[in-house]
């Protein structure tokens, strides 16, 4: 490691993000944050959660791809991460389907005394 130029040829080959890219991502993220707050004041009804989640997903994708360098990383790392998301979706999806069907049948245990019904 005495000779810098010599060692330079054997550094890890990793992607170095240009500063303008990182700064651009930050600005986009901040703008999207403002957007999600602003949109929340529009009366979108049931759509609002979809919009909110969509904006969050875009923000998350930006963080993962650029701040976490996944775009330039080994594809398997991307696979690992997407598997995790997929399994979360499966877990929540199945349980959600189920809970919508059984929850109406849930009866609370008999209340004692003053019941807030």
């Amino acid at each position: 490691m005495s000779d810098t130029t010599h060692a330079d040829t054997h550094v890890v080959h990793a992607h170095i993000s240009p500063l303008w890219q990182l700064a651009g991502i930050l600005i986009a993220l901040l703008l999207l944050t403002v957007a999600t707050v602003a949109v929340s004041y529009a009366n979108l009804g049931n759509l609002s959660i979809l919009v909110a989640l969509l904006i969050a997903a875009v923000k998350g994708t930006l963080v993962v791809l650029y701040f976490m360098h996944l775009r330039y990383d080994a594809p398997f790392n991307a696979l690992v991460f997407s598997m995790a998301l997929l399994f979360v979706a499966l877990m929540i999806g199945f349980t959600l389907i189920d809970s919508r069907q059984y929850q109406p049948n849930l009866t609370p245990p008999p209340a004692v005394g003053n019941v807030p019904e």
Binding site: I97, D98, Q101, Y102
Partner: peptide
């Protein structure tokens, strides 16, 4: 193996559709 956990809940009040799946 991740898609079968509900077979432990056939008698728990799980919805019939999910039980079948």
């Amino acid at each position: 193996g991740f898609l079968v956990w509900g077979h432990h809940m056939f008698t728990s009040g799980q919805s019939p559709m999910l039980s079948a799946i």
